[in-house]
Write a protein that binds this DNA or RNA. Structure first.
Lengths: 144, 144
DNA sequence: TTTATTTGTTACAGTAAGTGTAACAAATAC
DNA sequence: GTATTTGTTACACTTACTGTAACAAATAAA
């Protein structure tokens, strides 16, 4: 699952929770709604739980609850919760041939550039919260 | 080879050509300099050739020549030459479960968002030309 | 014309990574 | 105590990536 697929899948699940708040939904229920394997979804949800974005309870009638108001939950926060490796898989060729120093310098340059790009992306995601996404996709939040 | 590795490898090769212009270098020579397999490099260079970024000649004493002044060659142009698929591998889960329409709407939203991000990245790359990279990495261009 | 060399492209085996599903321990409401 | 649910691990299967080799087409030089 790519970082972008994880992100969109998570947002689908989270907005389902927001739209039906404060009803608890289990992984099978959510997975069925958004068309993804329940086990796979649980792996995503457990990361969201560890970052206090959702609250989970085990056992009979257990499941997931959104733990933040949709207007206070932005994309970057979700992205960081589900993706530990930095950046969108941006890397350079670490090997260097004859021009060793030059290659090292180039690698530094590009890692810095890719890092800048990553910052830009995260800044963009910081400006987008779950409520605004739900509005744009026509889903009614059940929060007041 | 990821898009980012291709990009940095290409730039290393191109700045080597710029630094030694108008000397012709073959793939073995360039590959040795930057520490990459010659056959692999040729695959990159052939794409740069098709986009008129370098000029190639076959046969004895053949090889590659930079075909643009470093100040007129920007990163986005190089990126487009070597990478046909759009975006940094950003995608969504196309499958949709019970909430079919909602999932389709979400997918559209995220594909638009990722497309915006792609545009931002390309705009950033348009502002960076080969000459400025060479200056920052301390490589002297052999162009006047 | 012949020969040596180089690009451009394809092929391929070996490796690594991603995918989907199942299975099960730990937790917990009933 | 029992049924159910999360959280995690495992695993077979597929897909993608990697590095290298091989060779046809092109072409400069002899």
């Amino acid at each position: 699952m790519s970082a972008s697929t994880k992100l969109s899948t998570s947002v689908k699940a989270l907005s389902y929770l927001a739209a039906t708040h404060p009803t608890t939904h289990n992984s099978a229920n959510i997975a069925e709604q958004i068309g993804v394997n329940a086990s796979k979804l649980r792996r995503l949800m457990s990361m969201l739980t560890k970052n206090d974005i959702v609250k989970s309870t085990q056992g009979i009638s257990g499941g997931f609850l959104l733990n933040k108001h949709p207007k206070d939950l932005h994309l970057q926060e979700i992205y960081c919760a589900i993706e530990d490796r930095k950046a969108f898989h941006l890397d350079v060729n670490k090997k260097s041939g004859k021009g060793k120093n030059i290659n090292v310098t180039f690698n530094e340059y590009f890692l810095n550039l890719f890092s800048d790009i990553q910052v830009d992306i995260e800044n963009k995601m910081k400006k987008i919260n779950l409520l605004s996404i739900m509005k744009q996709t026509g889903i009614k939040s059940n929060y007041k």
